[in-house]
Design a protein around this nucleic acid. Structure first.
Length: 580
RNA sequence: CGGGGCGUGGCGCAGCUUGGUAGCGCGUGUCGUUCGGGACGACAAGGUCGUGGGUUCAAAUCCCGCCGCCCCGACCA
């Protein structure tokens, strides 16, 4: 591709306020342009990278027996207007007005589509196992798009679904997808860890998220370096030591003016925060007030709370009025004397004697609160967030917390959707059985961004060979003065064009100064920069620069042609090239 | 949805407090010089100041509404 004819534009200055390196670099290098909040166009360069990533995903899906298929989709504008906060996209089922008289589109999720198709297609155990996948653009009315391509309102995702006869079959499919994902991310040059994740929402039995460690990541991971334990903080359960036994003492009021926080309360009473209990208040989508109680030194884990109360549509913080209406006082709240609320108590609080908790009056707390005696919880369950330095659930180590970006997930769905759509098969035993499903997703654009996050330097992007949109970048210098330069550069360009789609090279034939060309070549980030100039020709060929290592050497033209063609033997003499 | 900020040539911004002929840098076009690390000179083009209303002799500037974008909190690949 001739740079002079490529539809792109590099930005001379940094795009303002781009918080992530990938966001800034992809914009600067002309891979993408932003059109609105969370809406991007992939310019031709970006499209090629995107295609490359899709191709790698596709190859790894095919390798484990996946079959690509097409799924129906609702017109994006309709779903957009429907403005459901989270719209999984399948075919349109109908339209209706919601209670605010807004137009809504009722759409199926892809899991439901697959359930429906399975009911139609699968009849015998001989057809199973089966794995299907598809790439599809999804639209989500993201409440807050951010981080460039990391979190957008429109994105392409590969979804795969496995269909098996039984749990054991699902387990095999699950781990084969686990392997496919591991290989996919390796090829993309992404260092991922698979962490256990929440299965609450979709009612599965096992799930992993593939995470790339990144300080800007929106998930918190709980990791143990000693044993390899890895879980999303949403689900990590930390073993909590039972406090020393004490006889329950009588409940006792204590005046604690101005102590609306645990820190001020503990300081005022000169007790450790571990001797206190605190309350947090939430409201479910259907309007139930939920009171969560954890020890003063802990935080409420919302995912665990959602699962504990079955609030599949999420929780929002309660208002002061709602809390008071249930007989509690914000800042001095506890379930003692409260009414019309679901009380969820952390299991550690339930086995901690004689805690200090709110008395539901301004400036007053109780000493010696004991769960079960002073109030009765509706649910007792682990409710806390893991903290840095907490003991590892698996052994002797302690855990650390790191931020991560989710680049893929795998999920054992079980029979939820096949039950719903009566997707059954006739077994060897002659009886009807539900198909057992798994689902597996990778967001393409997010992976592109993560590759750039992981592979860049102060000069720009450094594409791994597998993902690079072009195999090399020719910089022609002094072509106007020396026709030989143009001839050699043209020829190298031609070699790439003939060697196949992914061996195409970018050819900077623009009438720009050398400085501009070198700077742009480094910004764009192809793995090899091939400088053709009177000087290089005099030295015997073409100057070859490895973008990643910065190593450069002048090599005969035939060698460079072999490098462009991807001839591994020659490439190997230059550096350890990865096979295509 | 709550809190904060911003909308002025293609891009980045100043001007607004205290109304009075719209400015700067980069980019763009033409010509010339330059040509292995974001070169230089000369000339030129390009803006209903987000939008609707109001105040005023006069509004980019003051007031009200709306729209859009960015950043911080509740979601997900």
């Amino acid at each position: 591709m001739r740079l002079s004819q490529l539809f792109f534009e590099t930005l001379r200055d940094d795009p303002a306020e781009a918080e992530m390196a990938s966001h800034r670099l992809l914009l600067r290098a002309g891979y993408v342009r932003q059109l609105g909040s969370g809406i991007y166009s992939l310019l031709p360069l970006g499209k090629r990278v995107n295609d490359r990533v899709e191709q790698i995903i596709r190859e790894e899906q095919d390798r484990i027996g996946g079959q690509e298929m097409e799924m129906p989709v609702v017109h994006p504008a309709d779903v957009w207007r429907a403005s459901g906060r989270y719209q999984a996209i399948g075919p349109e089922l109908g339209r209706f007005k919601d209670r605010n008289n807004r137009d809504m589109v009722l759409a199926m999720t892809h899991e439901e589509v697959v359930g429906l198709l399975l009911a139609d297609v699968v009849s015998s155990w001989r057809q199973l196992p089966m794995m299907v996948y598809h790439f599809q653009t999804k639209w989500r009315d993201e409440p807050r798009a951010r981080g460039g391509l990391i979190r957008v309102r429109e994105f392409v995702m590969k979804d795969a679904y496995s269909c098996d006869r039984d749990e054991a079959g699902l387990d095999a499919s699950y781990w084969s997808q686990h392997g496919a994902y591991t290989r996919t991310f390796e090829r993309l040059g992404l260092d991922t860890i698979a962490v256990s994740s929440d299965v609450g929402m979709m009612g599965g039995s096992l799930a992993h998220e593939f995470m790339v460690l990144n300080p800007a990541g929106e998930d918190v991971l709980v990791l143990c370096e000693a044993c390899g334990y890895a879980a999303n903080r949403q689900v990590a359960v930390i073993p909590r030591e039972t406090p020393a036994a004490e006889d329950p003492l009588p409940l006792e009021e204590v005046s604690t003016p101005g102590t609306t926080t645990i820190a001020s309360l503990a300081a005022f009473l000169e007790i450790p925060a571990t001797r206190t209990a605190k309350a947090a208040f939430f409201v479910t989508a259907d309007g139930r007030l939920v009171t969560a109680i954890v020890r003063g030194d802990h935080e409420v884990n919302e995912t665990k709370l959602i699962n504990a109360v079955g609030a599949s549509k999420g929780l929002r913080p309660a208002t002061v009025e709602e809390i008071k209406a249930a007989g509690m006082e914000p800042g001095y709240g506890s379930p003692i004397g409260a009414h019309d609320t679901t009380v969820v108590v952390d299991e550690l609080v339930a086995r901690s004697p004689n805690l200090v908790a709110g008395a539901n009056r301004e400036g007053v707390h109780y000493r010696n609160v004991n769960v079960g005696r002073d109030f009765t919880p509706d649910v007792v369950v682990d409710l806390t967030n893991a903290r840095e330095g907490d003991p590892c659930p698996n052994g002797d180590g302690t855990v650390i917390l790191r931020n991560g970006i989710e680049v893929g997930n795998i999920f054992k769905l079980g029979t939820r959707y096949s039950d719903a759509f009566k997707a059954t098969y006739l077994g060897e035993d002659g009886a009807e059985h539900p198909v057992v499903m798994g689902s597996y997703g990778i967001g393409v654009g997010r992976n592109v961004a993560c590759v750039v996050e992981a592979h860049h330097d102060e000069k720009g992007i450094v594409w791994p060979e597998e993902v690079a949109p072009y195999a090399a970048h020719i910089v022609a210098i002094g072509a106007a003065k020396d026709p030989q330069v143009a001839a050699v550069a043209d020829r190298l360009h031609e070699v790439g064009e003939r060697a196949g789609y992914w061996r195409h090279v970018l050819y900077d034939d623009r009438d720009e100064s050398p400085g501009v060309k070198f700077t742009d070549a480094e910004l764009l980030g192809m793995p090899w920069i091939l400088t053709v100039s009177p000087r290089s020709l005099a030295a015997g060929g073409v100057e070859v620069t490895n973008r990643a290592t910065g190593e450069r050497s002048t090599r005969p033209i035939e060698d460079v042609e072999a490098l462009i063609r991807g001839d591994r033997a020659v490439e190997a003499t230059e550096t350890a090239g990865s096979p295509r």
